[in-house]
């Protein structure tokens, strides 16, 4: 089974602290970005704004390359219209900028209210009829270099109704902390959603390499063998028993052996 990872990108340490504490993450890096980790989680503190979100996301996903099983969440506070309560957690289904919209796939079941969000370049005290943050669009665009649209989730917690007052660390903690258990359930759901066994087991992959070496297979023949093995595994719901042939055979014998092997896997 592949190791499953949940990547978390959070702008401020004050926003991340309740999550770091709840998930029992430990600091694994300090520069250029603070990173907190466990066997399942990689959490990076990106800093505020699009530029920081871009660089931090790219850094995190380069440092620990993602597999198809992994999932990335962006969490943090946002400004919101009055229809949303202060401290309410929101799942984002549309990320807008002045020029482009982004859409994460909404596959994961959750209990939060949903909303669109507008990503802007500076803090907003002017009223908007939509949630507003400063990172989501840049993070989405960057993450797509590494992940699929169905591997991304965006959760925001309402910090204000477009006020110019800067929240204290305690305020931020009080808004995020009540949601950490719900967040963990969501992370676990994402892990379960992405969980899958590799199609060919490691031992079958190794045997296939040995056969390729022994029969001195060309690149095309190796692809044929790989296809035939996948065909067998998907069709029979089990793995074939393979024997590595004698390396002393001549080319004609090796090719004949290869043809027999392929037809035995049909």
């Amino acid at each position: 089974m592949e190791i499953l990872l949940i990547y978390l990108v959070i702008a401020l340490i004050a926003e991340a602290k309740p999550i770091i504490k709840h998930l029992k993450l430990t600091k694994s890096s300090d520069k250029p970005f603070k990173i907190f980790s466990s066997s399942k989680y990689q959490l990076i503190i990106s800093g505020i704004g699009k530029e920081n979100a871009t660089v931090a996301t790219s850094h995190l996903l380069t440092l620990t390359p993602a597999s198809i099983n992994d999932f990335l969440f962006n969490l943090g506070i946002c400004g919101a219209p009055k229809e949303f309560e202060i401290g309410e957690a929101i799942m984002i289904n549309q990320i807008s900028t002045s020029t482009k919209d982004f859409y994460p796939d909404m596959l994961l079941r959750h209990n939060f209210r949903e909303s669109a969000i507008l990503t802007v370049d500076s803090p907003q005290d002017a009223k908007h009829n939509i949630c507003v943050d400063m990172e989501s669009s840049a993070l989405f665009a960057t993450a797509l270099y590494f992940l699929k649209t169905s591997q991304l989730g965006f959760i925001k917690v309402v910090s204000d109704h477009f006020s110019s007052t800067i929240p204290t660390k305690d305020d931020v903690n009080s808004w995020i902390e009540p949601h950490v258990e719900s967040f963990e359930v969501l992370f676990e759901n994402a892990i379960n959603l992405r969980k899958r066994e590799p199609l060919l087991s490691q031992s079958l992959e190794e045997k296939s390499l040995e056969i390729a070496k022994s029969l001195r297979l060309s690149h095309t023949q190796k692809l044929q063998l790989n296809d035939a093995l996948i065909y067998y595994v998907l069709n029979k719901n089990g793995e074939p028993i393979l024997e590595v042939p004698d390396t002393k055979e001549n080319k004609l014998q090796r090719n004949s052996h290869f043809e027999l092997l392929i037809s035995s896997l049909k």
């Binding site: 909404m106 596959l107 994961l108 079941r109 379960n192 959603l193 899958r196």
Partner: peptide, 10 residues
């Protein structure tokens, strides 16, 4: 494929 519909939206 190994997945549970419990984690999915309808």
């Amino acid at each position: 494929m190994n997945y549970s519909s419990h984690h999915l939206n309808e």
